[in-house]
Design a protein around this nucleic acid. Structure first.
Lengths: 171, 171
DNA sequence: TCTGTCTATATCGAATCGATATATCTTTCG
DNA sequence: CGAAAGATATATCGATTCGATATAGACAGA
């Protein structure tokens, strides 16, 4: 997943490890550690997906290769498996602009539907946890409610993105 | 972190691995894998924090020991370090009821303040990313905005929890 | 010049994930 | 009745990711 993100960032222009870590952190949902980043770069280099071009001083700038571009495209378009994590989806979203609109909308809607069914399950669990017989701790209840509200917010957000796609399509 | 969560759940009553995994999953923010759960149980058992009491059939029920209770209390009350993850905080929250109100409020407020300063940074990053010269991809912008809004929602949620604590204190 | 802070790469051990193997128990239904 | 299906339950493997730490050059300000 990190490898995919790295390839995505290198699609724009070459960068070095520290910069890649910073750029990912700025997306706001993932603070990658150096202990993940540098091994990822070595994995990708070994596979021939990226190339190091020594830069200024200590810096090692990496550029994506043709093979890397192919790998990236394949991963981006691959249909998301049923238990794609939040993070995996967000990473994919960060690079969705590389896909044609039709596929973008499809991916957004699939995600929306998955969250929707998760929400249904969460609601049932919550109703169950609220029964007097269960007597669930109030902080635990608060957490469950908060998780539910977050999922609802995510769903409206996705709806907004789809709506925005449709607007630009008909415009 | 998982070890702490397991101890917290075992504070109520003995449970077996599968049940612990399910209970954590129901909190809505962490789907623990078996590959994490069973090793965690073995770690805790080795440390003497829990004891296995063979249950029905294949099931192995685990109970927390006195040493385990002490470990749990220490971890729960330990002051959160500056870069506590979202997940670590949520796990702590799940068991906040074991602390006296004064400490609960303190922990909630510290978290609130940390999120607040994170939000400030995120806002600056976003303003920066929006400048025409940067020309950030619209999906990347959408992700940054969404992360910001999520943080804002988390902050109001925490405010609500604090307010609720204060109400019961003065009641 | 001293001190801190930011940049930058690297590595280690431990925690966690995701997939898979295996077996039992319960429910469903032909 | 018995077969199939699905939930329950434990376990382990390799790979990924984390968190902490080491190292060191660049630059700023006091």
């Amino acid at each position: 997943m990190l490898d995919f993100a790295v390839l995505g960032l290198l699609m724009e222009r070459p960068r070095h490890g520290y910069e890649l870590k910073r750029a990912l952190g700025e997306l706001g949902f993932w603070r990658v550690s150096f202990g993940s980043m540098y091994p990822s770069l070595r994995r990708l280099e070994k596979r021939g997906a990226i190339e190091a071009t020594t830069g200024t001083g200590r810096r090692k700038s990496y550029a994506i290769t043709e093979a890397g571009r192919a790998t990236f495209a394949a991963l981006l378009a691959a249909d998301p498996d049923a238990n794609e994590t939040d993070r995996a989806f967000q990473v994919r979203l960060a690079f969705l602009g590389h896909l044609p609109q039709e596929q973008r909308v499809k991916i957004l809607e699939e995600r929306r539907n998955r969250l929707s069914s998760q929400l249904k399950t969460a609601r049932e669990t919550l109703v169950d946890a609220r029964t007097a017989s269960k007597n669930t701790d109030r902080y635990r209840l608060a957490l469950m409610e908060h998780a539910m509200r977050s999922t609802e917010a995510d769903i409206s957000w996705l709806d907004g993105l789809v709506a925005s796609e449709r607007r630009t399509a008909t415009a």
